[in-house]
Nucleic acid binder design. Structure first.
Lengths: 208, 208
DNA sequence: ACCTGAACACCGTTCAAGT
DNA sequence: ACCTGAACACCGTTCAAGT
């Protein structure tokens, strides 16, 4: 109690919650997310974890959806980052698919949140739209390189949508337990196997 | 009030709730599903709609997840049915993809429920596992025909998983509003376009 | 400006009690 | 056997009030 008069002198040492509540709520939410799942992530529990009243969040986020939307945006930024690492793999599409798949499987709750109905009300969040578009942009870049066609060509966009559908579908089916991978099949093998599946389909389709 | 003594004489004309509550709850739930969405489908609201107390459902379903699981099973049965219609389209895979896609887009809430976390606790439901396996079996059949290989070959299974991933991903991305189709692009065109995307990828990959 | 407490309208679920 | 009512432990959200 030593004279807390006027200016709180910006940065002391204590990490008190007052002042920067929004980022603290976000990181608390992120910390809890994988443990409780996207549907059960509650504003009340997040607030309690930060040590603030259950209604404090409403001074920083319009509602739960917006908080969740920011979490999703952060997820898309991390996904973009994961897609940006170069590897030795010469097949760029396979490399990107694997990186995407690993991100999804490594952060299942976050991934569900990013693509689920959780943030449908926050669809208008600029941060979310932007981060998501950037992630898709990376994929389009990869496809443009693979096809050796301009980024804005309809072939690249079509192929990128197809690729995104495929890898998102694969990740979703596994995350939700619809399919289970046989014991001992690595992520690499699974991606390789499914990409080979398409190849077989097209061999048959175009007349072997 | 005419002598309701012993035997209620099986079928009168009134559609009273007593006796066959389970199917009534299921059909009420199904009726409400598309309007409220999978996450907000509440047991209390369903019960009220049927005209029964909020806790009556627990005498027929262990919990909400099980009720939802049965709804999902019904969805997979309908999906199997949708995949079983023959059309003029010579490309069986494209035909199946389109039928699948139309089912998903025509029943978005049901589709989310079938593949979402809503019924993860009811994963053990035999009815759900069975109906889902049958739907996937249809897809495998289509792939076996396309590839002209035996149903239980690893190529067919891999191709079926790839196809399911692709069409599930495409449906999910659109249902959740992650992607929006440009005005005037029909379901046919979208499926055609994305399948063509894969073709382009493989042309480039195998050296055009 | 930022946070709190009480309150409202919902949930799923349990359990003793009714018929 | 089947259903109900009250109760518990949660939710998201609003709002008047405090500093």
């Amino acid at each position: 109690m030593t004279r807390t008069t006027i200016t709180p002198s910006s940065a002391k040492r204590d990490t008190y919650h007052v002042g920067n509540l929004a980022p603290q709520l976000l990181s608390a939410a992120r910390e809890m997310l994988e443990a409780v799942g996207p549907a059960k992530l509650s504003l009340r529990a997040v607030s309690e974890r930060v040590g603030v009243s259950s209604t404090a969040a409403y001074h920083h986020f319009a509602n739960r959806s917006v908080l969740v939307g920011h979490l999703a945006a952060q997820g898309f930024r991390e996904l973009t980052e994961a897609l940006s690492h170069e590897t030795a793999q010469p097949d760029k599409l396979q490399q990107a698919s694997l990186a995407y798949f690993r991100f999804a499987r490594g952060n299942p709750a976050l991934y569900q949140l990013m693509f689920g109905a959780e943030c449908l009300d926050a669809e208008a969040l600029p941060a979310l739209l932007e981060a998501r578009a950037e992630a898709f942009g990376r994929l389009e870049q990869t496809l443009a390189e693979t096809l050796e066609l301009p980024l804005d060509s309809s072939q690249v966009r079509g192929a990128a949508l197809a690729s995104w559908s495929y890898i998102h579908g694969l990740a979703s089916l596994l995350i939700h337990g619809v399919m289970q991978v046989p014991e001992g099949v690595s992520d690499e093998r699974l991606v390789e196997m499914t990409l080979l599946g398409f190849l077989n389909i097209y061999r048959a389709r175009t007349g072997e």
